[in-house]
Design a protein around this nucleic acid. Structure first.
Lengths: 176, 176
DNA sequence: TATTGTTATACTCTATAACTATA
DNA sequence: TATAGTTATAGAGTATAACAATA
């Protein structure tokens, strides 16, 4: 039989939002990494130095949480940065379990180089966007993160009834 | 002391846009990877299967270009997927240098699982966004990518202009 | 015992270089 | 020689588990 051709309500946007975001993020992240690499930096180094400058160096635990990595992972980056002379670690006399992380002069210089590179990058990233668009974009990005970070199944209504999607745990991992 | 207090023009918004984007992308990518992992998938597997379904399987070279990885990298993913029984590789009788990549029935099933997971994820990602906002966001994301992918800085010759946004090596380390 | 951090090890994704097999 | 793909190896970033030091 000549079935009825079901015309999907074709979304006018080609690839799904998640994929677009991933692609954009990949391109932008790589460009950012390149920009940092140009001045001898890297993303973890930048995040760590920036967090230290921002006063998040109270403890490595706090620092790791701030930049979103595990303590053991942070240790490796810190070791690397220490070997490169960008920072020092010493025990907190007050609580000798805690290691105080401090930038050296060279670390400060490296921070400034990376900061300048990051600022230049950000300027490039902003090309052609007015502040209204930027605000809008940032708000949307925050919304995306919330959408995906919060509890997967909020009875938010509005947007699709079977909102659960996603939790079909026993679905044959099949391989791995 | 008459010190002219230099007021920064605009401490625009908390963290710079690039960092916000990176954080959002990290959170969203992580959540997306988790969603795929729930159904036994992974991002490369998803990209490969999706590209194959979309007809990009003409050759591995084309496939690799489509998803933005190197041929050798693709080979490893394909080998993995083949071992898991999701696809087959056989030589093209017409040009025996070319390997034709085809999904098995199990590969089709895996594709559908991942697709469902991706769709559910995308629905979640869209929560609270109307289509106008979505369009706006996508346009802005495209803009960001363009800003950063196009010929960056005239002053520096290190990076070739002609590339498609994908990087070659890991980041130039040390250099300090 | 609990907390802070390190060491050892491994996994994932990616890359380059050298190789095989076709053409 | 040129093209398609593979193998071997490496490296960056991350993680977990076991450990040491300190409280």
């Amino acid at each position: 039989m000549v079935g009825t051709l079901i015309v999907m309500p074709v979304p006018p946007h080609g690839p799904p939002l998640g994929l677009r975001l991933a692609r954009t993020a990949k391109a932008v992240s790589q460009a950012f990494d390149d920009a940092l690499a140009e001045v001898g930096g890297s993303r973890p180094a930048w995040l760590i130095l920036m967090s230290l400058k921002a006063g998040s160096g109270a403890s490595q635990r706090h620092l790791a949480d701030t930049i979103g990595i595990r303590g053991a992972t942070l240790t490796q980056h810190l070791t690397n940065l220490e070997e490169r002379g960008l920072l020092t670690r010493r025990r907190d006399p007050g609580n000798r379990r805690v290691h105080l992380v401090e930038l050296t002069a060279e670390g400060e210089a490296a921070f400034r180089r990376m900061r300048d590179a990051a600022v230049a990058f950000d300027r490039r990233l902003h090309s052609g966007l007015d502040s209204e668009q930027t605000d809008k974009l940032e708000a949307l990005l925050d919304r995306l993160r919330d959408n995906v970070t919060r509890d997967p199944a909020p009875a938010d209504g509005r947007r699709g009834p079977d909102h659960d999607g996603y939790r079909r745990g026993a679905n044959t991992p099949s391989a791995s």
